[in-house]
C-alpha cells in the first residue's frame, strides 16, 4: 500500500459528485403525528477513480443513506448528485439501468444478500445476461469462472454449482463482490462489507477490495464505523455526525491530527492496546440528537467540550486546513 497521497488528483478523476445534499424522511403515522427527520444536511463529497473515500460515523449518522442516494434507491430532498459530470436525477429506463451497472453495491450481510435457493453460478450469470448481452453461451460460463477466480474462489468450477449455505461468510462476501464486478462498474459502494465477518477473514476482503480498486481504477465508497480500517483501506476519510459532514480529508491526517471535537472523541474511543483504561470522571451524553428541518446550530453541541454560544445558532461553513483537509467547527 502506498503512503498517503496528499496531492489532490485532477478534477477529471472525479466520477461521482454529491453537492449540498439534504435527505429527509417522514416518520410517524400515515396521517397524524407525522414529523420529518433530516437524515442528511448539506452533504458534499466526491469519489475519484482509483481512490476510496471512507464514510465514518456511529449508527444513525447517515452513512448508509449516502450510499443509497448514490445507488439511486432514494432521491435527495435538495442538492444534486452527478456521475461523470451529468446529473443522475433525470435517468430513466435504459439510462438508469446503465447507471446501475456503473455504480454497484456490496452489502454488509452476505447471509442476506445472496438467494439461498440459487447456486453461486446463477448469482453471477444473471447480471451478465442482463447487462452484458454481447456474452453468449460458453462465454458466460468462462466469464463466471474468471470472476470467481478473480475474487480468490478457486477452483472456480467447484463453486458454481454450490449454494450460499455451503460457503463461509468470507466466501459469500467474495461472491457478492464478484457479482458487483460482473457488470464492470466504475464505482463500488461498500456498506460495512466486513463487519459481519470473522476477524481473521476481514483483512482478506479489504485486501481484495484494495487490489480491485487499484487494478480496475475503481472509485470506492467505504462505509464503516471502524476508523482504523478506514485508514487502512481508504485514501480519504469523511466523518458524519447526525447527517452533517463535520470533517473530511486524507485518512492519515484525519487519524493523526483530527480537528473536529467529534472526530477527536471518536479516535480517543478506539481500543488502543498501548494504554490502560482510566475511567473518566464525567461521562458525556451519548445520544445523537434527532435532527429536523427546524433544528439549528451544530448537532454536536450537547456533547462538545468546547462549545460556544454561536454553536447553538449556526453550523459553520467548512474551514480549509490545507492539503484537502476541511472541518466544520466554530472553535478551532
Amino acid at each position: 500500500m502506498s503512503p498517503v497521497a496528499i496531492a489532490a488528483s485532477p478534477a477529471s478523476d472525479v466520477l461521482v459528485e454529491m453537492r449540498d445534499v439534504d435527505m429527509e424522511f417522514v416518520l410517524g403515522g400515515a396521517l397524524v403525528n407525522q414529523h420529518v427527520l433530516r437524515a442528511l444536511s448539506g452533504v458534499s463529497f466526491q469519489l475519484r477513480a482509483g481512490r476510496a473515500l471512507a464514510l465514518v460515523g456511529e449508527s444513525g449518522s447517515g452513512k448508509s443513506t449516502c450510499a443509497r442516494l448514490l445507488a439511486r434507491v432514494y432521491r435527495p430532498a435538495r442538492g444534486s448528485i452527478a456521475f461523470k459530470g451529468a446529473d443522475i436525477e433525470p435517468l430513466r429506463g435504459r439510462s438508469l439501468q446503465a447507471y446501475r451497472a456503473d455504480v454497484q453495491m456490496v452489502f454488509q450481510d452476505p447471509f442476506g444478500s445472496l438467494n439461498p435457493t440459487q447456486t453461486i453460478g446463477y448469482h453471477l450469470e444473471r447480471p451478465l445476461r442482463l447487462h452484458r448481452p454481447e456474452l453468449r453461451g460458453g462465454a458466460i460460463k468462462a466469464e463466471v469462472e474468471a470472476l470467481l477466480a478473480r475474487v480468490g474462489l478457486t477452483p472456480a468450477a467447484d463453486f458454481t454449482a454450490r449454494r450460499p449455505h455451503e460457503l463461509s461468510g468470507g466466501q459469500r462476501q467474495r461472491v457478492a463482490i464478484a457479482r458487483a464486478l460482473s457488470v464492470q462498474p466504475a464505482v463500488l459502494l461498500a456498506d460495512e462489507p466486513t463487519s459481519m465477518l470473522d476477524v481473521s477473514v476481514r483483512l482478506g476482503i479489504l485486501n481484495l477490495l484494495e487490489d480491485l480498486k487499484t487494478q480496475r481504477n475503481l472509485a470506492a465508497l467505504y462505509i464503516t464505523h471502524d476508523i482504523a480500517t478506514a485508514r487502512y483501506f481508504a485514501e480519504d476519510t469523511a466523518v458524519l455526525y447526525a447527517g452533517h459532514l463535520v470533517e473530511q480529508g486524507p485518512s492519515g491526517v484525519i487519524t493523526s491530527t483530527p480537528a473536529h471535537p467529534y472526530t477527536q472523541l471518536l479516535i480517543e474511543a478506539v481500543p488502543n492496546p498501548q494504554r490502560k483504561i482510566t475511567p473518566r470522571a464525567a461521562r458525556r451524553a451519548t445520544d445523537i440528537p434527532m435532527w429536523t428541518p427546524e433544528s439549528r446550530g451544530c448537532p454536536f453541541v450537547a456533547r462538545c467540550p468546547r462549545a460556544l454560544a454561536i454553536c447553538r445558532e449556526a453550523m459553520p461553513a467548512p474551514t480549509d486546513l490545507g492539503a484537502g483537509h476541511t472541518v466544520r467547527c466554530h472553535n478551532l
Binding site: E58, S59, H225, D226, L266, E268, A269, I277, R283
Partner: peptide, 10 residues
C-alpha cells in the same frame, strides 16, 4: 458504537 463502548468499558 465505539464511543458508547468506551463509556461502558470505563
Amino acid at each position: 458504537d465505539v464511543v458508547v463502548q468506551r463509556d461502558i468499558i470505563e
